[in-house]
């Protein structure tokens, strides 16, 4: 890919978000020559953040600084980034990548309109001058090509392994004052998770339910299955919690708990990326689903195509009989 390539590093509580290192791998896969790291913050912390990026990646860093960037808001990011990229000519190829996280997906599409760019979200692979993303619950992938010189991309967390970067000598740092923009959005801080579940994060075995469970009356199947394992807990996809079959403290996924038990039993879970984000580092993943094409079977170590309502009682029965 020709032209300039920028990686926007997001940060929270003074820490660079981990997905940033995956974006460096992504840029390399795109064949970007000398990608530039970008970070936005207030004057008090910009040099430290930019310094960390320059040391860890060896890439050049642009730090955009202004008091309006003390806390994240989409408005603050867009009103800083749009003027920065507007300087590029209409024909110049520019790629801008950020992580497909709740913040990335918040400001990136808005940025694309501001700079007349193409916006491609949740990218998980790179083609010949094209990008690949999942659709239809992970059953298919779409290969898409940008029809604009400027492209902004969100990259799916976990899609590109953070390579061992040997930075050599740190990159050059350029701090650019972004002015002090008065915003119409007021940040009121961050509230701690309402539904953090220590039992879930400590469990060695998690028996987890998706929409395929069918209804709250089948929760007893999960309880039955989990009783075979000491140190086990019940998990669920967001859809199951939305239905009220289990409360949100059981939710596993990008907006819920992140877990890595020794064994993850995925029951009736289709395998949406938001759920995989919360459990893909589990030691062993076993999936039970009636649909042989469910995306979860590509993440699972072992898959069983069966109906939960008959298979779980059978499994428990065989287990008890065999002692």
């Amino acid at each position: 890919m020709s032209g300039r390539f920028f990686i926007i590093a997001l940060h929270e509580g003074g820490r660079i978000q981990e997905e940033t290192w995956e974006l460096v791998s992504f840029a390399r896969r795109c064949g970007a020559a000398g990608p530039v790291m970008m970070v936005l913050s207030d004057e008090g912390s910009i040099e430290r953040l930019a310094g960390e990026l320059a040391h860890r990646t060896g890439l050049d860093v642009v730090g955009l600084a202004g008091s309006h960037l003390r806390e994240y808001s989409a408005e603050a990011y867009i009103r800083t980034l749009v003027p920065f990229f507007r300087d590029a000519s209409e024909e110049e190829e520019v790629h801008i990548a950020a992580a497909h996280t709740s913040r990335g997906i918040d400001f990136v599409p808005q940025l694309s309109i501001g700079i007349d760019a193409c916006c491609i979200t949740a990218v998980e692979d790179v083609g010949e001058g094209s990008f690949i993303r999942s659709l239809h619950h992970g059953r298919f992938r779409a290969e898409v090509r940008a029809d604009r010189a400027k492209v902004v991309i969100t990259v799916l967390p976990g899609a590109f392994a953070p390579e061992d970067i040997e930075p050599g000598k740190p990159g050059r740092i350029r701090i650019v004052p972004a002015g002090d923009i008065s915003l119409s959005t007021r940040s009121r801080g961050t509230r701690a998770p309402v539904h953090a579940n220590m039992g879930l994060t400590r469990a060695e075995v998690i028996v987890s339910a998706g929409r395929g469970l069918g209804g709250s009356e089948n929760i007893r199947l999960l309880t039955m299955l989990s009783s075979l394992f000491p140190k086990s807990a019940l998990g669920a996809t967001r859809a199951v919690c939305d239905q009220g079959w289990l409360d949100y403290s059981h939710q596993i996924g990008s907006t819920g708990n992140t877990v890595s038990p020794r064994l993850y039993l995925a029951c009736g879970i289709s395998g949406a990326i938001q759920h995989l984000a919360g459990m893909r580092n589990s030691g062993m993943i076993v999936a039970i689903n009636t649909d042989p094409h469910a995306a979860i079977f590509r993440t699972a170590h072992y898959g069983i195509v069966e109906d939960l309502t008959t298979f779980i009682p059978l499994l428990v029965d065989r287990c008890l009989k065999r002692g």
């Binding site: 992938r141 290969e143 604009r148």
Partner: peptide, 20 residues
């Protein structure tokens, strides 16, 4: 349009899990 579809692909072969 800002982008065009090149083609639809079957899902990527992820981890080679075993179907029992």
């Amino acid at each position: 349009p800002a982008q065009s579809l090149v083609r639809i692909l079957p899902p990527a072969q992820g981890r080679k899990g075993e179907i029992i």
